[in-house]
Design a protein around this nucleic acid. Structure first.
Lengths: 123, 123
DNA sequence: CACTTGATTCGTTATTTGGCGAAGTGTAAT
DNA sequence: ATTACACTTCGCCAAATAACGAATCAAGTG
């Protein structure tokens, strides 16, 4: 029950579900996820922590960067949850939008991204 | 996305998930669900409304009683969610406890239940 | 009709949650 | 070593949420 509630609570936020979906089978560093969501770094970090603690994400530290990806060796509950989210939102317009936007973000220089989230762009 | 979020938010509460599971394939009136959860009628009513609006439950009015059951003709998302919850908690001790308790509640006279939830039992 | 009664809605309260910015951590570069 | 930087933690605030009791609604019953 503990695990199930952690998972459903993790999924019960739109931004967290978006993260899970646009990660797909790839890997993104935190600054790229920040760029995708357009939220404050601290907020995104918290979301990532919640997803990670629920077992939905795994992380990899590489120098100063931390890369997140969807958990590959998750428990049955975790795997079911991921499948449930993917199936339910496969055709969602918001998710499609994120997929497109991801292509753009991936083309950006990571260094630019990381700098950008500190110095507020003038819009 | 709307529907998905409604479902995950509905599942993101332990009491609501319990309702979904101990309903099983049967039907219970609100006073029985109140007895199962041991919460105030108004609270339970709200939980039922949330589950119903998410499409997870259907209701049937019979005289003064309202019977709830798990939605049979739900959308794909709804069906997946129900399956996800059932699979994830099939072996959960809390759920097993509820299943046992349900047997007791089903043996009670419904009229007694409905009276009881107003006049706080001395235990 | 008045009365009871099962269930919901309303109003309030306490807790949780999502968001931000500032401060802290740890790692690379200078 | 000092600085820069990627990320997290902390402290705070506003909004959402779970809980309750009181009031209300709806449907039998006397």
């Amino acid at each position: 029950m503990r695990e199930f509630m952690a998972i459903t609570k993790a999924l019960a936020d739109q931004n967290r579900t978006r993260i899970l979906l646009f990660l797909g089978d790839g890997e993104l560093c935190v600054c790229q996820i920040i760029e995708m969501l357009g939220l404050a770094p601290s907020t995104v970090s918290k979301h990532l922590t919640i997803l990670h603690q629920a077992g939905l994400l795994e992380s990899r530290k590489q120098g100063r960067w931390i890369h997140y990806r969807v958990a590959r060796d998750g428990s049955p509950q975790v795997r079911n949850a991921i499948e449930f989210a993917r199936a339910g939102l496969a055709d969602d317009p918001r998710v499609a939008e994120d997929r497109e936007r991801l292509a753009t973000v991936l083309k950006m220089d990571v260094a630019d991204l990381c700098c950008r989230y500190k110095t507020q762009e003038p819009t």
